[in-house]
Simulated assay, not measured.
Amino acid sequence: MEVFFREITNKNAFVEGYVSKKLSKRGFLLDVTKGHLGFDKGELINVGVDDEKMLENLEEGQYVKVWYSGKFESAPPQTVGLKVEIKDSKK
């Protein structure tokens, strides 16, 4: 199987949305409400992080802003979160 990764060179690449489901200490599904550079509104994406401390306070239903480094074409699409900011508590 071929995997396609598109690197984002814009240091301000971010996406916003609601945490749909926490997958592990290092990942979650994001329901995109504000897309940017390849992620569209309404898309569900898998966000992984290198440091599990980034997700310690993350809960399902929270509205977050995620800065990211690129996009893996998969189902669902995946990205590596560089920074996760909780914007609002649960829906």
Rank of each mutant, 00 (worst) to 15 (best):
V19L: 02
G35C: 08
L37G: 00
K34W: 03
N46Q: 12
E16Y: 04
Y18Q: 11
D50A: 11
I45W: 02
L30H: 03
V66I: 15
F28C: 03
L58I: 15
L44D: 03
V49L: 07
K34E: 14
Y18K: 14
V15P: 00
V49C: 03
V47M: 09
M54C: 00
K21H: 13
V47G: 02
L23P: 05
L55A: 05
G70Y: 08
G48P: 00
L29E: 12
E16L: 12
G27D: 05
V66L: 11
G35L: 05
Q62R: 08
L44N: 12
E60Y: 01
R26I: 09
D31E: 15
G38F: 08
L23V: 05
Y18L: 12
Y63K: 15
V64R: 00
D40N: 15
I45H: 02
V47Q: 04
W67G: 00
Q62P: 02
K71G: 00
W67I: 08
G17Y: 07
E43P: 12
E16G: 02
E52D: 14
L29G: 07
D51S: 12
V19F: 01
L29N: 10
N12V: 04
K41H: 06
Y63V: 04
L30P: 04
K11A: 14
G48A: 05
V32L: 01
E60Q: 12
E52P: 09
D51A: 06
V49W: 00
G27V: 00
G61Y: 07
S24L: 07
F39V: 09
I45E: 07
G42N: 10
G38C: 03
L37Q: 10
K11D: 09
E43K: 04
F14D: 04
L58T: 08
Y18D: 09
I45D: 06
K71I: 15
M54A: 13
G70V: 08
T33A: 03
A13L: 11
I45R: 02
Y18H: 13
Y63E: 10
W67A: 08
G61T: 10
E59C: 06
F28K: 04
D31M: 14
V47E: 07
K34L: 13
K22H: 02
K25L: 13
N12C: 01
V66R: 06
D50N: 15
S69A: 12
K22T: 09
V47N: 01
E43T: 09
V15C: 07
T33Q: 14
G17F: 06
V32E: 08
F39P: 04
K22E: 05
L44V: 15
D40L: 13
L37C: 06
F14A: 10
M54Q: 14
F14E: 12
V19C: 02
N57F: 13
E43N: 07
K21C: 06
S24D: 15
K65S: 11
D50F: 11
Q62T: 07
G70S: 05
L23W: 09
K41V: 10
G38T: 04
K65I: 04
G61L: 04
N57H: 09
E16T: 11
M54F: 06
V66M: 07
M54L: 15
G35S: 06
V66T: 03
V19E: 10
E56W: 05
K21T: 12
K53T: 15
Y63M: 10
K41W: 01
V19K: 01
E43S: 07
D40C: 00
D31H: 14
K25T: 13
E43M: 09
G42K: 11
A13W: 02
D40Q: 14
K11F: 12
L55F: 02
H36L: 06
